[in-house]
Design a protein around this nucleic acid. Structure first.
Lengths: 163, 163
DNA sequence: GTGAACATGTAAATTGTTACATGATTAC
DNA sequence: GTAATCATGTAACAATTTACATGTTCAC
């Protein structure tokens, strides 16, 4: 939707602009682009088959049509998987050092994600795009606040029991 | 860790007690239990191979040892995938009715998840288990607050533009 | 006696990651 | 000239879902 892009650029954009709720690796992206090309949903500017040379992909009218159709059928699902919480669930079997490391890493990661989101050019985005950023920020801020308070508390508490 | 359980019970417990950050389908669970049995990490009380009769699985000392080893190696990763935000990202291509439906469904789902979490027997859980519930609640509450405020606003805003 | 919930497992299909193979372009 | 980044793609592998096949037990 943002004009002709190379597969590489597309992946970078997904990571930068949608990274807070989606992920696309090259191994997933290129086969998908190939499939869409075969269906006539995207065109490439590649004339002669020169192998691995750069080419740009562009959505076609048919692609846009299909996109809107799929978009209307979207459900509201969300999936959250957390290795962090899996470990915290068994906090009483974890030693104090590992526990503290986990909480600190999670806090650092959330702060890094927040930095990334705050660096996005909000003013040049559509309303919907800004919405996703603010939604993600609201969740991340809640996580940070919680970890900052309760995280410290549980480390202290488990350590007390452990000794 | 919670004593001998049938595979079915185990799946129910994972859904009830860890459902806010993990998921295990039967198709994933039974093969995993079979593998752990082969490794000597779990025992079953099944004597004669009577086919599909109920049996209970119990962790062995070796299993506990391996568990603690893996637990110590845990990283702090979290993955969040949202079809809801994928759709909201393109809110300007969505019609007002679909947009409202999406936001309302997401709100309803979050409230249902919150009800489920609040119904858990917090007082009989370990500190780590309670931590995971409170962490999930903090995130869900942030989502609900956000959707309640900004969600309404964006529906109104997009509708205004759309007409 | 029948429907819901309990119960175990397999197989096909889907989905995605990771590693690999290859090469072009740019900055220093 | 060389390292980093840009760039495209394939293949092996891993993980997981979904659907299926097959029962049992319990409440009404």
């Amino acid at each position: 939707m943002e004009g002709p892009l190379s597969g590489y650029d597309l992946q970078q954009r997904v990571a930068r602009n949608l990274g807070h709720f989606q992920h696309a690796s090259f191994g997933a992206l290129y086969p998908a682009l190939g499939k869409l090309r075969a269906e006539g949903c995207v065109n490439t500017d590649r004339a002669g088959e020169t192998g691995l040379a750069k080419c740009t992909y562009e959505i076609t009218d048919k692609g846009r049509e299909k996109f809107d159709l799929e978009l209307g059928k979207t459900t509201d699902g969300e999936s959250f998987r957390s290795q962090f919480l899996s470990a915290m669930y068994f906090a009483d079997r974890l030693d104090g050092g590992d526990l503290e490391r986990l909480v600190d890493q999670r806090l650092a990661d959330h702060r890094e994600q927040r930095r990334r989101l705050l660096a996005l050019p909000l003013s040049s985005m559509t309303e919907g795009q800004r919405f996703t950023v603010r939604y993600a920020l609201a969740r991340i801020n809640a996580s940070i606040d919680f970890l900052h308070g309760e995280g410290r508390a549980i480390i202290a508490s488990i350590r007390r029991d452990g000794y």
